[in-house]
Structures are given as structure tokens and as C-alpha cells.
């Protein structure tokens, strides 16, 4: 809690180890949107040893697919989708260099362990405030899988995008800690 800390992508190992579950951050720099089908494609490309359309070692992936861009806007409404659907593919991506993810909701034990083992971080963004978060996006570039429409991989340049560290490289889980704190047991 407290004043959010500004973070810049790509994430360095120094930054990653300094982040702790519960830290409020403002993300700046480039992130890539990728969700369900894009994950399957990235995963399959890794299995086949093909070159990926993005450099995973420098990437932060934002689980998101924006609404269409209206005239005069940089992007349509955009916010996180639920992350667990990417859990099957994520450990493989982390093993291959992925350092950061932005989404919402709990991750599997496999993802939490991969984050810990390889030094990565999972940021939570607030779901359902997509008109607000769209204002943090300053530039959009289509990168790959255009056929997927909203689900295509896009490079976003974000400024002061609000997020909170959910899973850190030490293995902590904010959702678990915070919800337990407020639970009233009967």
C-alpha cells in the first residue's frame, strides 16, 4: 500500500526481486496483449522450436483483448481478462524468459512455482474499469495473429498503468493473504 511505485518495462531482475505481493505500482513502457488462442499458438511454437513473434525475455504479457478503437481514440476500452485460463501455457513461457504478466484472478500452483523458480512477477489489474485503463494506453501496434481479431498480439505503450503485485518471486500470493485477513470464520 501507500504511494504507488513507477516501474518500467522490460523488467530487470533487480526490479523483479524488489517487488513484493501487495505493492502498488504504475507500469510504464511496452507490454504485449495475448490471451487464450494467442497463448496456445505461442506454446505450440515453442514446442516446435519455431521463432516467436515476440521476444519473451523482454516481454510483459497483458491478458487482454481491447474493444475496437473508436475514431479519435488511441484504443477502445481495455482491461484484464481472467488469468487462470492461461495457466496451462504459462510455465513454458516463463521457462523461456517471460518476466511479467498482467491479469486478474488466481494462478495455478504450477504458475506460482514457475514465477518463484525463474524470477518473474504476476501483476493484478482491476477488472471492469476498462474505459479508465484505456486512458493509460498511448500507442498500439499490431504484432501478430491478426486473424484472431481482438485476441491478436498487440504492442501497447502504457503510461502509469495502475496494478498491484499479486504473486512475487518469493512465492507470496496477495489474493490469498488479503482475503484471509478479511474473512470472518463461522
Amino acid at each position: 500500500m501507500g504511494i504507488p511505485r513507477k516501474i518500467h518495462t522490460p523488467l530487470t531482475n533487480e526490479v523483479i526481486v524488489s517487488l513484493h505481493a501487495g505493492d502498488m505500482v504504475l507500469l510504464n513502457g511496452e507490454v504485449y496483449t495475448a490471451r487464450d488462442v494467442a497463448h496456445r499458438r505461442l506454446y505450440e511454437a515453442l514446442i516446435k522450436g519455431e521463432t516467436l513473434p515476440i521476444d519473451l525475455s523482454k516481454a510483459v504479457i497483458f491478458y487482454a483483448a481491447p474493444a475496437p478503437t473508436p475514431p479519435g481514440k488511441v484504443i477502445g476500452s481495455i482491461g484484464p481478462t481472467t488469468s487462470y485460463r492461461m495457466d496451462f501455457f504459462t510455465p513454458k513461457l516463463i521457462e523461456n524468459g517471460l518476466k511479467g504478466m498482467i491479469g486478474k484472478g488466481n494462478r495455478s500452483e504450477e504458475v506460482v512455482q514457475a514465477i518463484k523458480k525463474h524470477g518473474a512477477v504476476y501483476f493484478g489489474a482491476i477488472g471492469g474499469i476498462a474505459a479508465l485503463t484505456a486512458q493509460c494506453v498511448k500507442k498500439v501496434e499490431l504484432i501478430a495473429y491478426e486473424d484472431l481479431g481482438p485476441e491478436a498480439i498487440r504492442k501497447l505503450t502504457i503510461v502509469d498503468f495502475p496494478a498491484i503485485v499479486i504473486n512475487d518471486a518469493e512465492g507470496n500470493d496477495l489474493y490469498d493473504q488479503a482475503q484471509k485477513k478479511w474473512r470472518i470464520n463461522h
Binding site: A178, Q179, K180, W182
Partner: peptide
């Protein structure tokens, strides 16, 4: 009483 809270970040 589950404590999930707004955004799942804990609360009433």
C-alpha cells in the same frame, strides 16, 4: 464474510 473484497484484494 468470505473477505474476497472489491477486485478480490480483500475487504468487507
Amino acid at each position: 464474510d468470505l473477505g474476497i473484497g472489491p477486485g478480490g484484494l480483500g475487504g468487507r
